[in-house]
């Protein structure tokens, strides 16, 4: 019976694309992490933010989490197909990923529009005028973090789209994994934003 033994690769065996992507991810995580850390400190400082969090829609947030997790799943499927140089399947899975990204952005748009219609905007002048300046700070952080995350979703979608076009021509199969890693990072950030902004009330 054959037994496979996993051996950790040496430092120089890491392909440079993947190494670069990991470093980029580490850098991005620190940027988001810093925003999350400052949000957390403020959240501990102002318990009244829980009331504001009531207005975020857990259902839509959960839907978005589900969509992103599913898209991550499609990405690894695409990656697996890319190893077999199966460009048809890669394109299929990557377009499913793009679809998920699009759904995510649409749901986000619906959320934003309902929140804005309730008067919770970047500045929330209504809250400030009624003396709830602290509450308006919650919405600033909400828009800051979801907005930054949304930009990353967009960037990831563009990257995946470009890679998809390249793979369709039968080139650069290894880039599927790189774009996929970036996409997983976007997913990863959302995994933490979801409880922070939606579940905890």
């Amino acid at each position: 019976m054959n037994r496979t033994i996993t051996v950790r690769p040496g430092l120089r065996d890491i392909p440079q694309g993947r190494l670069g992507m990991w470093l980029l991810i580490a850098g991005e995580l620190v940027i988001f992490g810093a925003a999350v850390v400052s949000y957390l400190l403020m959240r501990i400082r102002y318990p009244e933010w829980g009331e504001q969090a009531q207005y975020t829609s857990t259902a839509l947030g959960a839907l978005n989490t589900f969509v992103l997790l599913t898209s991550s799943f499609f990405v690894v499927k695409a990656h697996k197909a890319s190893l077999a140089k199966d460009s048809k399947n890669v394109v299929r899975f990557l377009s499913l990923t793009l679809l998920c990204g699009l759904i995510f952005l649409i749901v986000k748009g619906i959320e934003y529009s309902t929140e804005i219609s309730h008067g919770f905007t970047l500045r929330s002048p209504g809250l400030v005028d009624s003396g709830q300046g602290v509450a308006s700070l919650f919405w600033m952080y909400y828009y800051l973090m979801t907005g930054l995350h949304g930009l990353h979703v967009l960037a990831g979608m563009i990257a995946i789209f470009v890679v998809m076009l390249q793979v369709r021509k039968g080139k650069y199969f290894h880039r599927v994994e790189l774009a996929g890693m970036y996409w997983h990072m976007v997913d990863l950030i959302w995994i933490f934003l979801f409880p922070l902004l939606y579940i905890l009330k």
Binding site: V30, I31, A34, R123, G133, M140, L144, L148
Partner: peptide, 30 residues
């Protein structure tokens, strides 16, 4: 690489404070 994250986040917040009127660093809004 590992120390620049906070200042990028901070610069983003400061930029929003300046151009969009948010109050991340405005003591009177918390």
């Amino acid at each position: 690489m590992f120390s620049v994250g906070p200042i990028i986040a901070g610069a983003f917040m400061l930029l929003l404070d300046r151009v969009a009127g948010t109050g991340f660093f405005d003591a009177y809004r918390g």
